[in-house]
Write a protein that binds this DNA or RNA. Structure first.
Length: 492
RNA sequence: CGGGAUGUAGCGUAGUCCGGUCAUCGCGCCUGGUUUGGGACCAGGAGGUCGCAAGUUCGAAUCUUGCCAUCCCGACCA
């Protein structure tokens, strides 16, 4: 466990990988680039899903499910989208295997079972969904169409990393259709707000809301909004995107509706998604050199109770007290695990739960039962205190709220301390190499300049912040005039 | 896909240059006993196609070739 954990300073990426695997979140599988999400990691993802799903429904969306496969002819209909994803598609070309006559016991692809038309394993579902929407939308009365799906997608990435970039990943993708441009833009912005709200209030990660530059825009979108988070190593992570699709997909798939005047118009679209990459963001934002740190709102269990005893008699005494406390806490909505394994010593359990990021630990021994107390340890600050069991549930609820808030505050402080303005090229480069982080700087607005800066420094424009202050200045690279700062960073 | 590194028991490793007496050690695992308020101790035990496949050789963990996987650096990307 943590005695084997390399420090963040010594090797950040190894630290990350160690946490993912040693905290039992996920592991590499027999399939290149694809991970197995283990029960403890999946439980966190389920918490995320539950919270997000509720928020989607509260904003009027419903869930549906569309096929994994997209016929190539549909996939290529929206040209920019198809071109953008073409280089990372898995393609199904056959539908049958047969015994290999040359190798007994082995199978081979049956050459007679070639598909008429290849199927693309979805890298994103716009094509299959918009081709379906064509049949669902005739009138303005059919709009807006507000649908989300929870699914897996495949993008054949060259270099993968657990949660941050895997060939197959889990996500949700919302796909909506509207009768006006204004309404579609409102939807795009609404969902960005939902993502920001989720990141800040559940994940305890402050995020920067903004729009992408043309270079970084989703293939097939008119405008891409994003939330950007800053990781502890000073690199940025795109945590969610919301796209205004204009009428691009409506044109590509001929999706039209009759308006109130009886005239046919193309519908306006949006799509938005977050993925299991959020797991990576969660890990890298809060965890420390002792292991994972989880915000209470997303922890599979918020409190672990570790009983301490020597004799059978003590064990039954301590156990019944533990169960009593567990019940009391569950009554006020706190999730509790009673770790009554008799195969491990308390010290081992302390270390294990600490490594796995359980927000609060309660230890109960015979002494506590006698005194009417418990020992409570916070994972975020590692502070221990002895609390009277009277009103314990109220105190625990309060502590969990404090931990949630403290994690957010710490992450926000970190981001504040690692966001800098640069006004010259030298300053820009120095900031990048010294500290990384977000760098706020003037840019002349051209893709060429953005590209050159990226080439020279590996830093890209993460976003143009929403509600950005207008300010006259000169592009740090070209010296041409600029009327606002944008956010640069090296990114995952 | 380009550059670099690695692959030996569940994990971490020694051995590879210089082929044979070589499958090493620690953790973990199993059994028994003593333990239990911060990662227990003693004794005994099990566990291996040395990544996979061909080749060279009397003989391959060790040499050659191909493939696969992982990590790091690029390009690509949520």
């Amino acid at each position: 466990m943590s005695k084997d954990l390399v420090t963040r300073e010594a090797n950040y990426s190894q630290w990350y990988n160690d946490i993912v695997t040693k905290a039992d979140l996920a592991e590499n599988s027999a399939v290149r680039g694809c991970m197995v999400i283990k029960p403890y990691g999946y439980a966190i993802w389920e918490k995320m899903q539950q919270a997000l799903d509720k928020m989607f429904k509260e904003t009027g969306h419903v869930n549906a499910y569309f096929p994994l496969f997209v016929p190539k002819s549909l996939f290529e209909a929206e040209e920019k989208n198809a071109e953008g994803f073409a280089k990372e598609c898995a393609i199904v070309t056959h539908y049958r295997l047969k015994n290999d006559p040359d190798k007994p016991g082995k199978l081979m692809v049956d050459p007679h079972a070639k598909l008429e038309e290849e199927l693309i394993v979805r890298p994103t579902s716009e094509a299959i969904i918009w081709s379906t929407y064509k049949g669902w939308i005739q009138s303005y009365r059919d709009l807006p169409l507000l649908i989300n799906q929870w699914a897996n997608v495949v993008r054949w990435e060259m270099r993968t990393r657990l949660f941050l970039r895997t060939a197959e990943f889990l996500w949700q993708e919302g796909h909506t259709a509207h009768s006006s441009e204004k309404e579609a833009i409102e939807e795009t912005e609404r969902m960005l707000e939902v993502y920001a709200d989720f990141a800040e209030n559940f994940m305890a990660i402050p995020v920067l809301k903004g729009v992408k530059t043309e270079n970084e825009r989703f293939a097939g979108a008119v405008n891409t909004y994003c939330i950007e988070a800053l990781m502890q190593d000073g690199k940025a992570l795109q945590a969610g995107t919301s796209h205004f699709l204009g009428q691009n997909f409506a044109h590509a798939f001929d999706v039209k509706f009759a308006n109130k005047e009886g005239k046919l118009e193309h519908v306006w679209g949006t799509s938005w998604g977050v993925s299991t990459r959020l797991m990576g963001a969660l890990i890298m934002s809060h965890s420390d050199d002792k292991g994972l740190v989880l915000p209470p709102k997303l922890a599979p269990f918020q409190v672990v109770i570790v009983p301490i005893y020597r004799t059978d008699e003590e064990q039954s005494l301590v156990s019944s007290k533990s169960l009593e406390i567990k019940k009391e806490l569950e009554k006020v909505g706190v999730s509790v695990k009673f770790d009554n394994r008799d195969t491990h010593k308390p010290g081992f359990k302390f270390a294990e739960h600490e490594f796995k990021g359980v927000p609060l630990r309660i230890a109960i021994g015979p002494r506590d039962v006698e005194n009417g107390t418990v020992e409570v340890a916070r994972r975020d600050t590692l502070e221990k205190s002895t609390l009277l069991t009277s009103d314990l549930s109220v105190k625990i609820v309060h502590l969990l709220e404090q931990i949630q808030q403290n994690l957010y505050d710490k992450a926000l402080d970190f981001r504040t301390n690692n966001t800098h303005k640069a006004d010259t090229w030298e300053e820009f480069q120095r900031l990048l190499d010294d500290k990384g982080g977000f760098i706020s700087a003037h840019w002349d607005g051209t893709p060429e300049t953005e590209e050159k800066i990226k080439e020279l420094t590996k830093a890209a424009i993460r976003c143009i912040p929403l509600n950005n202050n207008k300010e006259q200045g000169k592009c740090i690279f070209s010296g041409n005039p600029s009327n606002e700062r944008v956010i640069f960073a090296r990114a995952y």
